[in-house]
Design a protein around this nucleic acid. Structure first.
Lengths: 164, 164
DNA sequence: CTGTATCCTTAAAGATACTG
DNA sequence: CAGTATCTTTAAGGATACAG
């Protein structure tokens, strides 16, 4: 009996991303690194995560090139790499969703730039600034699409045409 | 011995969000709903998820107000609610990260608006259009901040001042 | 302070078979 | 087609204690 379906096997970038950062703790650790907590103890205390879990996650994140160790081996500092910092929009988007739908007394944290200007709600846009929403979005097969992906998209398009 | 630390207990909107959609499968199911797969069988086949898992996830998503059932009880259709559709930016941000860092032969899927205009890379911005990155971001306590959250932020700020 | 070593518990995940 | 019931396996997650 196979353990857990490896999401990385799916022909989907979301699945690839989730295969790497899609567990319960990883994005919270990344969050702490963004905020500036880069000591083992700081992160552990901040999240209340088990020390063993934290150690294993940090190692995974390093293996995946999302963070790197600096400082001394005895007292390391963890810093995000470019790949890790690139998670910023995804992380903020999730945080904003939580602010909107699961923060009864208002956001626990406010995000600003260094001049104190608040972050606006994140939107998906075209290059010329038109907003793409879930309602007007279209998905098409890309260069990396497997045959199964193409078939999936085609089948749905056909169904929707019929439904109309 | 407690089972798993409930992320919802943390005073952090990211944690709240992850507590609801932070497992391996949920966002992939939501993705399918965005694409237009709203039958049980379509989703199951598309993801290769176990039927029991899918059933339990769909029920959770309904309980959390992210999707709703339509159609007949015998042959339901699943649709995202406003709360669910609001996950769009987060989902796309993660997908784009996967495109950039885990798609060797190019993106499996392309996202466009209904006129075929491609989605630009998502960025975090202020209201007046300045880009906020992980490097120039600042986090401050918000209205919903618990004492512990304030302390955490203050402590880090102090450390960084000293380090400078 | 930063881990590792162990041990333990439980929930996550899946296969199979059955029902309306 | 859309599930539910049941069972099995294993990995996830955590507590505790110890080490450099």
């Amino acid at each position: 009996m196979p353990p857990r379906t490896r999401l990385g096997a799916l022909n989907c970038s979301l699945a690839q991303a989730l295969d790497i950062v899609g567990d319960w703790w990883t994005l919270l650790i990344v969050r702490d690194l963004f905020i500036g907590a880069n000591r083992f103890g700081e992160i552990q205390k901040s999240l209340g995560i088990a020390r063993t879990m934290l150690a294993s996650r940090l190692e995974q994140l390093e293996r995946n090139g999302i963070l790197e160790r600096r400082g001394t081996p005895r007292r390391p500092l963890y810093f995000l790499t470019k790949k890790g910092r690139d998670l910023f929009p995804a992380l903020v988007a999730l945080m904003q969703w939580g602010d909107r739908w699961a923060a009864p007394v208002g956001p626990p944290m406010r995000l600003t730039d260094r001049n104190g200007r608040a972050a606006a709600p994140i939107a998906v846009q075209t290059r010329d600034g038109a907003t793409i929403t879930g309602e007007n979005a279209r998905f098409a097969a890309g260069p990396g699409a497997a045959a199964s992906t193409r078939a999936f998209i085609e089948a749905l398009a056909a169904t929707r045409r019929r439904a109309r």
